[in-house]
């Protein structure tokens, strides 16, 4: 009867698995993969390798698959993490757990760990499915994957790392919004709106930078989380001109401040993630009066 970390994580995973509405969430990445197959088939499958090297095709498809995974897994993970963190306060089970000796910090850590484990599993399954989808959409490329140079596999790892960072941020953001708000509705809403709101703000700042010719706006853009997450894949592979989604550059385009290095991207993302984690823990440990 120890309320150990492993026990709490197991319980969180059980609760998430038994919530029927969570069973619908895999439909989101599934739909993304269907789109990926369609994109692959129409862009590369039918035209085969005309005008492109195998490496170029493989890069395009890998980038596209990575972006599909980051977007379609990110939203469900935000939802899962935000709900997991909010449920205890929303339904009052925090009384049962804290009142029975589980520490508040442990509860937050367990929720993060459970959502993180789901993110890792989802990434692994997603990658396997994406590989299958690419093979299905472009069998001509699939047959020649073994001939790809070492550079490609290095870039693939960087893509996977970028997706993992993105998914990790989603887990932390979802946990943060619900832990701080202690409300299912507010936590979910904030989690789902946060990144799109930053995207919109990026657009506004870019507009202001263009019209006011003030550096402060471009600097501010580089400090937001969403544009840095979007840009990370590109920033980690500076030897490539653009990382492409289908035939288009990734995300909202290069940051207004100009090319941002991987180091700055990672620092900004780490700072946001650390801030979210710290705020979550302070909120859980500092606000000891549980009135739910």
């Amino acid at each position: 009867m120890s309320f150990g970390h492993a026990s709490l994580v197991r319980a969180e995973l059980f609760r998430i698995a038994r919530q029927r509405s969570n069973w619908l969430l895999p439909l989101v990445p599934l739909a993304g993969l269907v789109i990926l197959v369609a994109l692959t088939a129409t862009s590369y499958g039918l035209t085969s390798t005309t005008g492109k090297t195998v490496l170029s095709l493989a890069r395009d498809l890998t980038d596209t698959a990575s972006l599909v995974l980051a977007m379609t897994l990110g939203a469900p993970l935000l939802l899962i993490a935000a709900r997991a963190a909010a449920h205890d306060h929303h339904y009052g089970t925090v009384r049962l757990l804290v009142g029975g000796g589980a520490g508040r910090g442990r509860l937050v850590a367990a929720k993060l760990a459970a959502a993180g484990a789901i993110a890792l599993a989802a990434l692994a399954v997603g990658m396997a499915c994406a590989a299958a989808a690419v093979a299905l959409g472009s069998p001509s490329l699939a047959g020649r994957m073994t001939s790809l140079p070492q550079t490609y596999w290095h870039e693939l790892l960087l893509d996977v790392f970028s997706v993992a960072v993105s998914l990790g941020c989603c887990v932390i953001l979802g946990t943060f919004t619900s832990t701080v708000s202690r409300s299912l509705a507010a936590g979910l809403t904030a989690a789902m709106v946060w990144l799109p709101a930053e995207q919109a703000l990026t657009g506004v700042l870019a507009f202001l930078a263009g019209t006011a010719h003030a550096d402060v706006f471009t600097t501010a853009t580089g400090l937001l989380l969403a544009p840095n997450l979007d840009h990370l894949m590109q920033a980690l592979q500076p030897w490539r001109a653009t990382v492409e989604f289908g035939a288009r550059p990734v995300g909202p385009g290069p940051l207004p401040a100009g090319p941002v290095g991987a180091e700055q991207c990672l620092i900004v993302i780490s700072a946001w993630a650390s801030g979210f984690l710290l705020a979550s823990l302070v909120s859980a440990l500092g606000r000891v009066d549980v009135s739910e």
Binding site: F3, R15, H87, Y91, G92, T93, G100
Partner: peptide, 29 residues
């Protein structure tokens, strides 16, 4: 300690058995 404070703290989307199972797993042992 076992406690029941005001309204029962239950997860309505789970069954009664799963609510108990959730707490069993959380407590461990």
């Amino acid at each position: 300690v076992g406690c029941l404070i005001e309204s029962p703290a239950t997860l309505p989307f789970l069954s009664g058995r799963d609510n108990l199972e959730f707490l069993r797993l959380a407590r461990g042992g």
